[in-house]
């Protein structure tokens, strides 16, 4: 169920979109804009855990049609908003 056309989304908009997705899916009481682009997502100051990682991965799959596989790939992709955005855009280029 891809709802976002990545060809029409620039990098800044994608990052803004991802921050909102993280806040909603992980039920965090913070402003999406308060998440730094390079802030550590899992195990960092945001206090997200592996269950949040799974929730974000599922939401990214539903929203952007991009599967984030487990293991090293997931750890790399979910390191920060920057890496998550890169993963999504790289998937589109491939």
């Amino acid at each position: 169920m891809t709802t976002v056309d990545l060809t029409t989304l620039d990098l800044a908009s994608l990052k803004t979109d991802l921050k909102s997705l993280i806040v909603v899916e992980c039920d965090k009481d913070i402003e999406p804009g308060s998440i730094d682009d390079d802030a550590i997502l899992i195990g960092g100051d945001l206090d997200l855990d592996s269950l949040d990682a799974l929730q974000i991965s599922m939401a990214v799959k539903n929203r952007y049609g991009v599967s984030i596989e487990g293991g090293p790939e997931a750890r790399r992709a979910l390191k920060s908003v920057n890496t998550l955005a890169d993963t999504i855009l790289n998937f589109q280029r491939d």
């Binding site: 169920m1 929730q55 599922m58």
Partner: peptide, 9 residues
């Protein structure tokens, strides 16, 4: 309805 796996949480 959507044919998708449930959200983990």
């Amino acid at each position: 309805e959507h044919g998708l796996p449930p959200k983990p949480l």
